[in-house]
């Protein structure tokens, strides 16, 4: 469905010097350097999958999405969306995709949202039944009628984003590319947006590729994750597998009587070399251990042997921690891409 083969994008960036003297000198000469924003990445996303495209700022996420949507031509390598090379067959590609770039509007600036939708309906030749069904859905979930006849340029960010989201799904696209779709939305609307795309995926088999700074968007929508760092893919698989990649796991427990906290920490850290322990906010003790040295069973056994446990659980590693670790271990190249 979505395939990338050694996809690469280089940018030429003009060097600007800071300050007034800098501006004066660039008046006379201008230097360029090449920045590789996407460095030969390859991946394959199945039809109907919901994938989070994850990476630090400047990791080349947006650049990749721009190539997949046909906005930019790769410097080398290629990609296919629905069997079409997007930047070569722009119109064929455009018919079957929906796009949201949270930072940039694609609506008609001087027109109201209903007017914009009428235009989109014509442009994509949306059948009446589909249009009515989708509009009813947007009324229900996004309260789209509340936007009224105000020109788009006078809408607030949150209002505009609701319209952008709806516009990207109006023609029942086979694939949606959402780049930061929930900026400016409150919790209720975020929920609605997530429900909307999950529904499209469940009912129409819409393929979803999402980037978001809000990790709860990712957890609520995506099953799969594609992690890039320094312009390269560092993980391609399910979100679940990504979480299991955590190199440090933890166990949290409560114990009756026995040694004090300092004593307990000392006992754990000597008994389980490489592990660290500390008090959590709730007054429990948290043990963090390296995943390659111990299994959770091993750690639990140790705790059962040494403490009188009142309560004990092993929390799922959270996405943020995993990502922080993934970025750290990744190749730190081309971070200054500037076109992330």
């Amino acid at each position: 469905m979505i395939v990338a083969e050694r996809l690469t994008k280089d940018f030429r960036v003009a060097e600007r010097r800071p300050g007034l003297l800098g501006s004066l000198s660039t008046l006379l000469t201008r230097e360029h350097r090449t920045v590789r924003a996407v460095d030969g990445i390859s991946f394959h996303l199945r039809a109907g999958s919901k994938t989070a495209y994850i990476g630090a700022n400047g990791a080349g996420k947006s650049t990749t999405i721009k190539m997949l949507t046909g906005i930019m031509t790769p410097s080398s390598g290629r990609c296919l969306v629905n069997g079409v090379e997007p930047y070569r067959q722009r119109r064929d590609n455009a018919r079957s995709i929906g796009v949201v770039f949270g930072q940039r509007s694609q609506l008609w600036w001087d027109l109201s949202v209903p007017d914009s939708f009428q235009i989109l309906r014509r442009i994509y030749a949306v059948p009446d039944a589909v249009y009515e069904r989708n509009l009813a859905l947007y009324r229900e979930l996004l309260d789209i009628d509340a936007l009224g006849t105000t020109p788009v340029r006078q809408l607030s960010l949150g209002q505009r984003m609701r319209a952008e989201i709806a516009a990207s799904l109006l023609h029942d696209p086979k694939v949606v590319f959402w780049d930061e779709p929930t900026i400016g939305l409150d919790m209720v609307l975020k929920e609605a947006v997530r429900a909307l795309v999950n529904r499209a995926n469940a009912e129409l088999g819409t393929t979803v590729l999402l980037t978001s700074h809000d990790l709860s968007d990712i957890s609520a929508i995506c099953d799969d994750a594609l992690v890039v760092d320094g312009g390269r893919v560092v993980h391609e698989g399910t979100l679940h597998e990504l979480l299991r990649r955590a190199d440090r796991r933890s166990v949290v427990f409560d114990h009756r009587g026995g040694p004090g906290v300092a004593d307990a920490v000392l006992r754990i850290e000597t008994g389980l070399p490489g592990a660290t322990a500390g008090l959590t906010g709730e007054g429990r003790i948290r043990v963090d251990y390296p995943a390659e040295a111990f299994t959770s069973r091993h750690v639990l056994g140790f705790l059962l042997d040494h403490f009188e446990l009142a309560d004990c659980y092993a929390p799922e590693p959270d996405l943020e921690t995993v990502l922080r670790q993934t970025y750290r271990s990744g190749v730190p190249a081309a971070r200054d891409g500037g076109a992330g």
Binding site: K66, T69, G70, I71, R90, R91, D92, A94, R95, I97, V99, F101, R104, S105, Q106, I123, Y124
Partner: peptide
Amino acid sequence: QRGEFYRYLIRPVNP
């Protein structure tokens, strides 16, 4: 300059 041009490239109409 403002990166707004993309919207003509994502529509199934001649840009």
